[in-house]
Computed example of a mutant assay.
Amino acid sequence: MFAHIIQTLPQVLIDGLTLGAVYAIIALGYTMVYGILELINFAHGEIFMSGAFIGTAILIGLTGVGWIAAFPAVVTLILVLLITSVATGFLGMGIERVAYRPLRKSSKLITLITAIGMSFLLQDFVRFITELKNGNYIVNTPALFSGKVSVSASSLSSLFDDATFKVTFIVVLLVAFCLMIGLEIFVNRTKWGMAMRAVAQDPDTASLMSINVNKVISLTFFIGSALGGATGVLFALHYGTIDPYIGFILGLKAFTAAVLGGIGNIRGAMFGGLMLGILEMFAAANLSTITGNVLGAEYKDVFAFAILILVLIFKPEGLFGKAVTEKV
């Protein structure tokens, strides 16, 4: 059993890092909004899904006019990421303005129900548009980067099996880490980032110090949604097939990653996403071996959530979170 786990480790790390990077960026959207509003924006998963469809639609359009064949893939990727990020950023701002801002003084339960309602609304809207244009709500994304790379892990040690990955693995990791590092710099090194941290700490005091709280909240939704939309493009490019329901399960897991790392903590969301992705791929590759074929790869979610429960039992605030004393 141990030998099998070691043999599959290189492939598990490759697949886990790819999936974990997707979870990490989506988790950033959850943790940013929660850090300021203490709101779980359950529509964020559907913003990620919308980004996947917007990016795919742009790629299909560019393929139709011959752009992809005429221009380098990197140029096309940057263009698609920029357009999709701006579109989903404004979508997130619109959702905040229409659905959340009027309920800001209401109970958190009402806002939570509204977020779930927006999630279903976006799902059905995207499905309706896709079926109207395509005749089917499952869409294949045009290949922008093709080819696979073999990793000769066995040459490093006879304990390892060789591994393979698609070129999009490198693309996903590079773009994901650039986005995460860029967000970290923005939040900690810029004037707007300082304003976001001030509003997260005490919105009333921040407003007394001439900070426009509504603008800061709108900016938070824009950035979080833009990141989610860009991640949707990366997901569509790597996995090749999307549907209007991919945002639900991925959004739920990304929220889990945010909780695992410590919701409201940006670095915690990054680490939680990467950790959850690796755990999930580890379970998919080795769960049947560990349990003697009692549990198969389809139970990988159970394994990942069991780890989450154990972590939260001993550290309820998450791995990077800080215990907060509630004021009475």
Score class of each variant (00 low, 15 high):
Leu250Phe: 15
Gly228Leu: 01
Ala284Thr: 06
Ile211Asn: 00
Gly193Gln: 13
Asn293Trp: 04
Ala198Phe: 12
Ile278Val: 15
Met281Glu: 06
Gly273Trp: 07
Gly229Ile: 04
His238Cys: 05
Val216Gln: 13
Ser210Lys: 12
Ala195Glu: 08
Asn286Asp: 13
Phe177Asp: 04
Asn212Ala: 08
Ser218Gly: 08
Thr256Met: 09
Ile185Ser: 02
Ser288Ala: 05
Ser288Arg: 01
Thr241Trp: 14
Phe255Pro: 04
Leu219Ile: 12
Ile290Thr: 01
Ala269Gln: 05
Gly268Trp: 10
Glu280Ser: 07
Gly193Ser: 10
Tyr239Gly: 11
Gly273Ser: 10
Asn265Trp: 06
Leu276Pro: 12
Leu279Cys: 07
Ala297Gln: 01
Ala226Trp: 08
Tyr239Phe: 15
Ser207Arg: 14
Leu276Ala: 04
Thr256Asp: 01
Ile223Phe: 09
Leu276Val: 07
Met196Asn: 05
Phe235Met: 13
Gly228Val: 03
Met180Asp: 01
Gly228Asn: 04
Ala206Phe: 10
Ala284Lys: 13
Ala269Leu: 03
Ser218Thr: 15
Ser210His: 08
Ile211Gln: 07
Leu208Phe: 10
Tyr239Gln: 09
Arg197Met: 14
Trp192Ala: 11
Phe186Tyr: 15
Ala200Tyr: 00
Phe177Ile: 14
Gly182Ser: 13
Glu280Ala: 01
Ile181Lys: 07
Val259Arg: 00
Phe221Asn: 05
Met281Lys: 12
Gly277Tyr: 01
Gly228Pro: 03
Arg197Phe: 05
Ile181Gln: 01
Asn214Gly: 04
Phe271Cys: 02
Val259Lys: 04
Leu179His: 04
Phe222Gly: 03
Asn214His: 14
Asn214Leu: 14
Asn286Lys: 02
Val213Trp: 10
Asp202Met: 03
Leu208Gln: 10
Thr241Leu: 15
Gly193Glu: 02
Tyr245Lys: 12
Thr291Val: 00
Trp192Gly: 01
Glu298Asn: 03
Ile249Trp: 08
Thr291Ser: 06
Ala284Arg: 15
Leu179Cys: 06
Glu298Arg: 00
Leu183Thr: 13
Gly292Met: 06
Gln201Val: 11
Ile278Arg: 03
Tyr239Ala: 02
Gly262Tyr: 02
Ala236Lys: 00
Ala258Glu: 03
Gly182Leu: 07
Gly264Pro: 04
Gly264Trp: 01
Leu227Val: 13
Trp192Arg: 10
Leu287Gln: 12
Ala236Val: 04
Gly193Leu: 11
Lys300Thr: 13
Leu260Gln: 05
Val187Gln: 07
Asn188Thr: 12
Phe186Lys: 05
Val216Phe: 14
Lys215Ala: 10
Ile263Pro: 13
Asn214Trp: 08
Tyr245Glu: 09
Cys178Asn: 07
Gln201Pro: 09
Lys191Gln: 03
Leu179Asn: 00
Ser288Met: 02
Val199Phe: 08
Ala285Val: 11
Val187Ile: 11
Ile249Val: 15
Gly277Glu: 05
Val294Ala: 02
Ile217Met: 02
Asp301Val: 08
Phe222Arg: 06
Leu295Ile: 00
Phe221Ile: 06
Gly182Thr: 10
Ala285Cys: 03
Gly268Leu: 13
Ala195Thr: 10
Pro203Gln: 04
